[in-house]
Design a protein around this nucleic acid. Structure first.
Lengths: 355, 355
DNA sequence: CCGTGATGCTAATGCGCATGAGCAGGCCGG
DNA sequence: CCGGCCTGCTCATGCGCATTAGCATCACGG
């Protein structure tokens, strides 16, 4: 289907050129504000062209511009799941808030790749008709990303930034410092007198899971060898955490670090069922932020989601700016997390009297 | 910056053509599965080309494809407020859910006009650097829209669809049937025995406000002249509804229709304060859906937000399709609202014993 | 009056693809 | 044995834009 049969509403540089009595090249030069020594447009001509551009409401065709190697101030946003349905809304909305705000500041429009087909609840980045290249660069959002996708994207030459730490080489990202926040909370627990730690983490090799684990392990070993024992428990993803809970109790932990907020709520229920009072008899630290308000205010890590979004777009903006050259380090940004004090962390039961 | 300095990993039809020993045209024909009488590719050749395409992992450049073919399959989404921040999230998210889903079905990508500057909390549609024309058409979302904007858009030739009824001529829209839903609720109240109605509506000439008013008035007059009196009260937007509440009481209304959910909650508080029991002594019907869960389950209208979004994109799709020609009627779609029974509508106090 | 450099622009090209026109060769009917 | 038709492709072109080379004009110094 050629365009010729559709009503021609879009105005082209050539038409502007005719109206202004100059050549298409001149229009292009004016549009892009080029003022090299090679191509000089005097103020009078420039303003004449600009006036016509304005009056005719000229807007460049993004496809043509891309094809010819130009920029569109268009940033693609790819979410591995549909972003707006209630299920994923809370996760993406905060990120998108930051992205949207920053886009306004930087003058970018956002291209949401909603045409990507969803299979098994996840979007296909490289589907046959993907329009990734319409954008100048793109942002990748999602709890888990496909390594193959990331590599392919990295080699494709299309600039992009992932939200969340990705070990894949050559992948620029903006991530929350889960390791640091976990270490901080370990420190707090330690200072309260806890010596027996347990951790329940997800069955995933995702970087953020590993980061939290590392934060815990490292901080505990840093605090000298005074720890009386640490149980690290991998949660089978399907169960109700019965087994994991028993292991926590058997280990005699006085504080349990739970990676996922959903799991934390389950643990809370199990504790109540067994008459274990939190935090008096057992402290509970959650290493993530629940999607919605919880009945009990959890002591937890709160990642700076809105800022993550904003910083990701900023970083992409830097990458896209031909003036700026970033070092490898600068391509990987880590932002500190907040810690919500909550009401589930206290001193251990057997230390209380002594203090 | 020409693309030439980027690593060239992408393979083009021309390269595929060389590998397969055919012309670029042939590759294009195979890629697009054309089999006109004019251009016939025998199975052998086709499969040879397909094999090379597969082995070389050819992916068409969307920019080039669009440039050669016409449309961008890009639909703009303009929201009068930033869409993602918590304040407006609940309103837009439901709409966007429908839009996103439909975009996936129809193969559209969404262009969010986030570069439009926000002044006084509202985005400027026609700001000097607006990039509306980047899209093939666009969707307008927002509680209130500027009439001038709508007219300008209508005359600009850019196809668009508004969500929400707009009287401005030539504006295609998809709207919720507030009039019908209000009438339905009036009918329910009437059938329960209510004869004294009051309504508190917003101080706005917005179409949806007018629709609800009309639904109430029309249905009451349809139900013959048995109504003992109807008080229509315009809420001053700033006050705590004290005055309005007193008027409702003075009018002796047995049921009060409140347009805005926020106002309904205020009325509920005032009633409690005055010891008026809802719904035993006074029924309360809300003509809209609150952003978040309310302590009391309101009897109310629930607009089909997700469907509104989906239908709006569908309609725009139809408008953009050169094959389809829509009549004026078909450019204006009205969808029925759901009614949440809730717990604030019951028979009137003085009727109860008689029934 | 000529050479030289600066000025102000335009012509030409290519990005990767879709598509209509058309060409070469084979086949068949007459 | 030739004309016409079908088959299987290729050629050429343009989509709208960015970019580079370079042309024409003019000012000015010598």
């Amino acid at each position: 289907m050629r365009r010729q049969d559709a009503p021609r509403v879009r105005i082209t540089q050539r038409q502007v050129a005719e109206l202004a009595g100059v050549s298409q090249s001149t229009v292009s030069l004016v549009v892009n504000g080029k003022a090299d020594a090679r191509s000089r447009i005097p103020r009078a001509t420039r303003e004449r062209v600009l006036r016509v551009l304005r009056e005719a409401e000229y807007v460049a065709d993004p496809a043509a511009r891309r094809l010819a190697g130009g920029m569109n101030r268009l940033v693609g946003v790819f979410t591995y799941e549909p972003a707006f349905p209630a299920a994923s809304r809370d996760f993406y909305a905060a990120l998108l808030t930051g992205i949207e705000h920053q886009a306004e500041q930087l003058g970018y429009d956002l291209l949401m790749f909603t045409s990507a087909p969803v299979t098994h609840g996840r979007r296909q980045l490289f589907h046959p008709a993907n329009r990734l290249r319409l954008a100048d660069g793109c942002l990748l959002l999602g709890l888990e990303m496909d390594d193959a996708d990331l590599e392919r994207l990295a080699t494709s030459g299309l600039p992009f930034v992932a939200v969340g730490r990705r070990e894949t080489p050559g992948v620029p990202y903006v991530a929350a410092d889960y390791a640091g926040a976990t270490a901080e909370l370990v420190g707090q627990a330690w200072d309260l007198g806890h010596r027996r730690f347990a951790m329940i983490h997800r069955d995933s090799s995702g970087e953020s899971v590993q980061d939290r684990l590392r934060g815990l392990i490292d901080e505990l070993s840093r605090r000298d060898r005074g720890a009386l024992g640490t149980a690290v428990i991998e949660a089978a993803s399907t169960t109700g955490l019965e087994k994991e809970w028993r292991r926590v109790r058997r280990a005699g932990a006085s504080v349990v670090f739970v990676e996922s907020p959903e799991h934390a709520l389950v643990v809370l229920d199990l504790a109540r069922r067994d008459g274990v009072c939190v935090p008096d008899e057992l402290s509970l630290v959650t290493l993530g932020d629940p999607a919605r308000a919880t009945p009990v205010e959890l002591t937890r890590i709160v990642p700076p989601r809105t800022r993550l979004g904003a910083e990701a777009l900023s970083l992409l903006g830097q990458i896209l700016d031909p003036q700026v050259h970033l070092s490898t380090d600068e391509l990987r940004v880590t932002l500190p997390c907040a810690i919500a004090p909550g009401a589930t962390l206290a001193g251990p039961a057997d230390e209380r009297p002594a203090t």
